[in-house]
Design a protein around this nucleic acid. Structure first.
Lengths: 203, 203
DNA sequence: GATGCCCGATGACAAATGTCATCGGGGGCC
DNA sequence: GGCCCCCGATGACATTTGTCATCGGGCATC
């Protein structure tokens, strides 16, 4: 049986290299390409047509989920999986929506990762139980589209005036949205609301 | 010549294992212990007395710098180095103050890391040029001790009243400190001030 | 001993923000 | 059609926050 052709994408050279070396020890796995950024991962996928793409969540240029989305559209034959250090519920949700087949934290062992790659290649799926539990307990976002949008614009601490301008809304409207978003999240001001929404992956 | 005895501490099993495997390939390096948390790293250091401790910056329990500080006090014979994903200027400064001999991002290759371990073992020092440049350009914190403290308490978006209570200060005083801190940082409100200070590693 | 800086506080004022009621338009659903 | 929810807006009001001047105490430095 021919080996599973794997694409590794992670911006940390240290990890990527080490991983490539370890996975290379498995007889049935073959790392055919490596990438250090989102765009590079896409390019490598186009060039090498791997069976499975192992993507880090945070990469320069485009994050793992964006890459997965692009791959799904362009090269649906490639199965994607996400490996990440900080798994937030929203990421998992976004990832699954993007057709990612597996989602695991970097705390798994290389041995386990190799198994996951095989599972994914065989058409299986996997989600880290702990992350799944978090995602389920976080539930769905109670925020409306505009509330989320405004909340996101408020993310870097910008004043209302700036948010209003960037969202092309009146300041009053912005304040109303922020107020209702904060109340839905149980926050006492928009800044904690932003933090909570981020923790739950709703922005 | 006897090999360099190395302690590896990183909470991400995937990386730690991969790293251990790769470094193990080097004839002159010997990974004698691994740890997944700060306290565990300390325990392992006491038990195995490595020559060099390679510490991740962010670990549960105690971060790399704390571990380095503790090691310096308790086992000064162990040379420490920090490897990290997100190198912020303040971390570098704290690390050097803690007697860390090398500071590198995880974007280096395993080969390079092996070299660094040898360098550190030989008594040398190394700081990633880019991180060093950042640290230098970020300069010293213009914040006074209380300003920084209050700014940190403001970190999660807490209202003034809560900050005042937690800092045992009057609300007016808190507002004054936040105001002066924001003005020193060129921010238009405390929230962006917090963000800027964090980016520069001043909190 | 004067000077300067940090600490901690107060008062006053202006500006930003949060909250609420209310309005009109649009769309989905029973 | 009636109901509900979202969108976008306005006005009014209370609260929070930012800004500034000012004060006194402590501490270091020249």
């Amino acid at each position: 049986m021919s080996p599973v052709r794997v694409l590794l994408a992670d911006d940390e050279h240290l990890i990527r290299g080490a991983l490539a070396a370890l996975l290379g020890l498995e007889d049935d796995l073959l790392v055919v390409a490596e990438a250090a950024s989102g765009p590079e991962a896409l390019a490598m996928a186009r060039a090498h047509r791997p069976d499975v793409a192992v993507l880090d969540l945070q990469m320069p240029g485009a994050d793992g989920v964006s890459v997965a989305t692009a791959l799904r559209a362009e090269l649906p034959g490639i199965r994607t999986m996400i490996v990440t250090s900080h798994g937030r519920p929203g990421h998992l949700k976004r990832a699954l929506a993007a057709g990612v087949r597996a989602f695991a934290p970097k705390t798994v062992s290389a041995q386990r990762l190799a198994e996951l790659i095989r599972t994914v290649h065989a058409g299986g799926r996997y989600v880290d139980p702990e992350l799944a539990a978090d995602a389920i307990s976080a539930g769905d976002s109670p925020l409306t589209a505009r509330e989320a949008e405004v909340l996101e614009l408020a993310g870097d601490g910008a004043p209302i005036a700036e948010i209003a301008e960037r969202a092309s809304l009146s300041q009053g409207t912005v304040r109303n949205y922020l107020s209702s978003a904060a109340s839905k999240l149980g926050a006492e001001n928009r800044h904690t609301a932003v933090r909570l929404a981020r923790e739950r992956g709703w922005v």
